[in-house]
């Protein structure tokens, strides 16, 4: 199993954070888990926190959020942190099963997986295995 330094949960819904944290803790009980219910706050933090890009970091990112969408957030991060995605991995966790959203996710080099809510231990495991290969 891949080792991460930290896992970041971004979802505007607190219950989704609660659920995802529980699944994540099942696999990485000792790891630091940071949660954001606001994508704007997550973006601001990502733009100024170098460790997220120099140490192995996994982000579980929702798509449909008020104010700033998941993909818009990623676009901004990719713009500002050009080519720093060796250690910054993102998995989209969303209730959208739209083909359009899945295709959109694949366009981002840092996105390693796509999970439809509710996230379960099984599909999180599957995506973790895939991130080792580096694609979905």
């Amino acid at each position: 199993m891949k080792r991460y330094k930290r896992i970041i949960l971004v979802d505007d819904n607190e219950t989704a954070i609660f659920l995802n944290r529980d699944v994540v803790k099942e696999f990485f009980s000792e790891i630091e888990v940071i949660a954001f219910t606001n994508s704007q706050e997550f973006l601001e933090e990502a733009l100024k926190t170098d460790e997220w890009f120099s140490e192995s970091t996994l982000v579980l990112l929702d798509i449909n959020m008020p104010g700033l969408f998941g993909f818009d957030t990623l676009e901004r991060i990719e713009e500002e942190r050009d080519g720093e995605f060796e250690k910054f991995e993102v998995v989209m966790v969303t209730s959208s099963d739209l083909k359009r959203d899945n295709e959109m996710a694949q366009r981002f080099s840092c996105v390693m997986g796509y999970i439809i809510k509710p996230m379960r231990a099984e599909n999180f495991m599957k995506v973790l295995k895939n991130t080792e290969v580096g694609k979905f």
Binding site: A16, L19, S95, P118, M119
Partner: peptide
């Protein structure tokens, strides 16, 4: 519809949990 879907997913997850 999107919100309803989100909350249904939450309910499913919570019941499993």
């Amino acid at each position: 519809a999107h919100d309803a879907r989100n909350h249904t997913a939450n309910l499913k997850g919570l019941i499993r949990m």
